[in-house]
Structures are given as structure tokens and as C-alpha cells.
Design a protein around this nucleic acid. Sequence first.
DNA 1: TTGAAAGCGATACCAC
DNA 2: GTGGTATCGCTTTCAA
Lengths: 338, 338
Amino acid sequence: MATINDVAEKARVSVATVSRVINNSDHKVNENTRKRVLLAIKELDYHPNAVAKSLQMRKTDTIGVIIPDISNPYYAEIVRGVQDAAEEFGFSLILQNTDRDLRKLTRGISLFREKNVEGIIFSGGIIEDKEVTPVLGAMQEKSVVIGRQRMDIPSIRIDNRALTIRVVDHLASLGYTSLGFIGGPASSTTSEDRRCGFVEGAESHSCRFDERFILPGELSLESGYARTSRILEYDDFPQALVTVNDQIAFGAIKAIKDRGLRVPEDIAVTGFDNVPLTRYFDPTVTTVNIPRYEMGRRALKLLLHRIRGSRVEEVTFFECQLVVRNSTKLQAKPSKTK
Amino acid sequence: MATINDVAEKARVSVATVSRVINNSDHKVNENTRKRVLLAIKELDYHPNAVAKSLQMRKTDTIGVIIPDISNPYYAEIVRGVQDAAEEFGFSLILQNTDRDLRKLTRGISLFREKNVEGIIFSGGIIEDKEVTPVLGAMQEKSVVIGRQRMDIPSIRIDNRALTIRVVDHLASLGYTSLGFIGGPASSTTSEDRRCGFVEGAESHSCRFDERFILPGELSLESGYARTSRILEYDDFPQALVTVNDQIAFGAIKAIKDRGLRVPEDIAVTGFDNVPLTRYFDPTVTTVNIPRYEMGRRALKLLLHRIRGSRVEEVTFFECQLVVRNSTKLQAKPSKTK
DNA sequence: TTGAAAGCGATACCAC
DNA sequence: GTGGTATCGCTTTCAA
């Protein structure tokens, strides 16, 4: 690999000059010299070494992203948003999956510090003050979070409680009077907020709900299937099931159908996220649209502001919409996708 | 941020000594000195600077991954495999999405070179000799590809042609005699290989197939829906549809049902990939399991071998299995998930 | 066992 | 306009 020295030698100029033309600095350089340098660069197939540059400049133009699992479409879409915005501003991403494991979380943060990332975006998983603050250290000033967390870091959020109340309102307006809830891990603040919203909404409509029908779980198809199966074993199972993500909802619907029951006639189901497949599932799934991609973009921009020293909003809320589809209509009408 | 110099000063030793204890080098260092250094490190909350280390060592422990789109679950799972393996060996990943756009591809490669990644893993999208070779340069020796491509780079592959023939065999054995095919972009070698396999299989069973029913498309739900709708407009539409991925298959099934037809009684559908949802869709989808995660892992390991100078297999094939489910059974039986 | 010093490949200040 | 050179933080001879 050719270095700036090789270029300087070949062009018979100093490295300072080469540096100037590489960065088309405002420092003037003669047109002819510039040409010679450019030629040498071409001939040597010279690429500036970003590592050396980073060392000197004390900036790496990379930011770290910490998520539970990139193979989870929910996070994948957030990451895509972050990444597109990052690219716009000339930043690279380096990713760390935690599987919601504290050890992996802290290891990721340490790695990021060593690699001198300029900031960190967290999404999902537990971020507890006690555990994380010490290893995060000064990087806390250069972090943003997508979702609620227990630390003093600016966050991009949605109002999970209010949204779940909206879901319950919708269900109540359709005449459902007994409800169940399938959540995620107890450590997930998102899931907890939704559970609170569920309870609050159900109470306000005097819906019947029952500890047997409020279950925690994983955010997965399998968990949705298993929890729903368990609920269906009771004769007095609820008329509608509120779940905290679309994967769970898919699993729930399959469990219901496998038991010979119909959605929504025998039991309605709602999800969260509005992944593309909700429009293709049978029945199509009532859910809450969460603008994951946009939240990713925004998180990146927010982080850049922080990095550059601006004060930023402590909390940025994103609006979400309830998307009503066939999994909650009392009589399913022929659906029209397009 | 404390540097190695600060530590040296605080511990009243030279940076050389500090370096030795940090890397527990085999170079002996007195137990007492070591303790002093360790203490200083703790007190200063010192983290070695990976950038400086990289510059000196001429290695970054970073590898680049180039894929069309991380928000596509197919690639997300590959990336997760790569990442887990990378972590095992102490490597970090840096990602680049191309959206199958040549300009983004070359930009990504350039970036990776500047960042001194130690190797590149490509998956998906067009990798044409002409376009890519020059910008890849010496990095070609440090690359591996997941999928077929038109360059001289070791690859991890599956036998798309044979697998598609297997799908057709299955269909033929069930008695389907007229077939259709919905593919991806013409630029996708994977999709092309599958089309060849489809034609070859259909011919060998003397199945009826027709240019009208062999359509290219995108690898998406929408595309599957649209292409299928078009096919269904013909009165002589085929009895079974082979599609090149599960997303397309989902779209196809919905299009069929929306038209009031049944899967598989009126028309059967097959996919490719075996994403988790194929077991939850209604009907469950016959597909080909592709071990994406394992392929990702293997790609990383293969790359590490290359980087370390070993010769590696030019092509590594992965076995895949046909997974028969209800979207191709002539009479659907009650399915049992678990 | 320990330390001094020469780089790694850039940037940028200061002379000329 | 151009060049010399200190510097970023670390590893690694080479001497002591």
C-alpha cells in the first residue's frame, strides 16, 4: 500500500503539499504541482490511510450501535435508518449485538471506547444505571438511546402507554369486553409500558381482564404461539388478545387457527410494529405503525448534534398510528392490498 | 482520555513496560512493577487506543461486510452469523449496504480500503469483474463471497440449480403438470441459477411451462403479489408456482387468496430460504432451508484463513433441504407446529 | 527487567 | 506556494 510519502516522492513535493491536495485544503497550491500530485496518486493507486488520519485528527468518523440482535427485523430496520443517515454525514457504523446480555453490553461499550467511536446509539435491552454508567464513562455525553431507559441520556421514544390505550380503545369500540395481553421480557421497558397502558385502558372501559391472561414472554413467533395456546386452554379465554409485537401476534393467530378457532370471530388479535407482513398475513393484522427507519435516522442526527456539542432535547417523541386491519374486525371483509 | 504515557508516568515506569503489561507480553516484567502499572491503569481508567495500536501494528481487527440491505432478514441473518464468528476471533464488523447499486458498492469498497479492513465479505448483488476488480485491487486476495459471482474469489455457495430441480421434482411427484416461476432481478445470479433449474426440472418431467409464467421481479412481498396477480389473469394459469424466495411466496399466496382461490388446491406455491414465518403462514409454506447463519459463520472463518495466508477452497457448498409444508400438499392436513 | 527511541501514516504549524 | 518537522498513542527493537 502506497503511503503519502511515496506519493510525495513520486511527485517530487513534500508530504505537506500532498496532504493539501488530498484534502483540497484552502491553502493554495499551484495548479501544476497539484496535477503532478494527482498523477502520482493515480499511478500509485494511493488511498489515504484512515487509521493514521484518525490518530492525528482525533476523530474516527465512526459511531457504535448497540442492539439486542441484528437478525431481528425490528432492529434491522432501525439500523438501516441509522446507517443511511450516517452515510449522508460521512460516518461509518460499527455494530454490537447484546442478546440482552449485560456482559455483552459492557464488552461492546468497552470495545467502542477503545476503537474511539465518536458516539454510541443504544436501542433495546436493559440499560441500567448502575451497571452501565461506569463503563460508559465520558461516552455518556456522546450517546443517545432509542426507547426508554433508566439513565440520563437523550432518547428517541414513542408513547407506548398511550398507544396501547389506543389499541384497547379500538377493541372496546368494537365491542370486545374481555381482553388478554402477551408481553415480552420483564426487563423490556417497552413491554412494561405497554402492559401498563393495557391495564389502564382495560380498566377505563371496565373490560374484564385477568392475571391468567396477562403473560410475559419473548418477542418471538414461538412465544406468541405458546402463550396463546396456554390461554386457549381456559374455557373463559378473552375475546381479544393485545400483543406487544407483530411476531407474537403472528404466533398467536396461528395458535388460534390451529385450534380450529377463527380470528377475529372467535378471538381478535393485535400486534405492534407494523412489519410489512402484517398486510399479507391471513387475516391481515391490526397493529401500531412504528417508524423504525425514521427513528434510526433521527437518532443518528441527534447524536451528531450531541457530538458537536449542541444541547439536544432530552426526549424526542415520535408519532405512531393505529393501523386497523382484519384481525380485529368483527366480520372480516374481503381485504384489498395495494 | 488517559494515554499510555499518563499510565507510565503515574506508575513511574516507561511506556515500554506499560505496553508489556497491557499485552501480557512474554517479555518478563517484575511482579511489583506490574502491580504498579495495573494500579495506575485502574486509577486513570485507562483504555488503550485501538487506533494508535492499529497504525503501529498495521492491523485493525476489522472486517468489512457488503450486502444489499441489512433490513432484509435474509442478509440480516447472514450478518449475524458473520458477526458472532467475528466476535469469537476478536474482530469487529463494519457494514455497507449497496441496494444493489454499483456506485454504492464501489464506494463501500473504497471506504473499506481506507479504513484498512483486513478483509471483505460480499453477499448478494452484482459483482462484475470489470467494475469491481480495479477498485478492489489487492483486497481481492482478502475477500470471500457468499453466493455465486463472476470473479475469481473463493465463495460459499449452495447449488441453486439442483435445489430448484428438487423443488420441481417434488411438485411433479405430487402430480402438478403445469408450472410457473417468479424470480428476482435479472442481475441476481442466484435467481438466474434457480430459473435454469426450474426450466431444466420442468422439461425433465415434461411439465407445461410458458414464457408468460416465468417472470422476473423483485425479492419482495409486493413483487410476489403483483406478479402472481398478473399470472392469475390468464385462464390457463399454472397449477403450481415456484418462487425464488419466501417473501415472494407470501405475496403470491395472498394474491391467490385475495382472488378467492385456495392454496394448494387451486394452485400450489413454493418459496426459498425457510424464514421462520413460513411455519406460521396460512398455509405453511413449502420451501428450501438455507443455513444462512452458518454460511455467515463459515464465510468469516474462510476469510480469516485467507487473511492468514492459507489457501482455501475455491468453492464451499452448503447442503440445503427441501422442507415440505402445506402450500404444496394436494389436500391440506391439519398442521402441527412445534 | 527496564528504558530510549525509531517508526506507523497522516495533519498542520511555522519558516522560507 | 512549498517544505521541514513535531505530533497523535502505541509497539518493538536494541542497549543498558
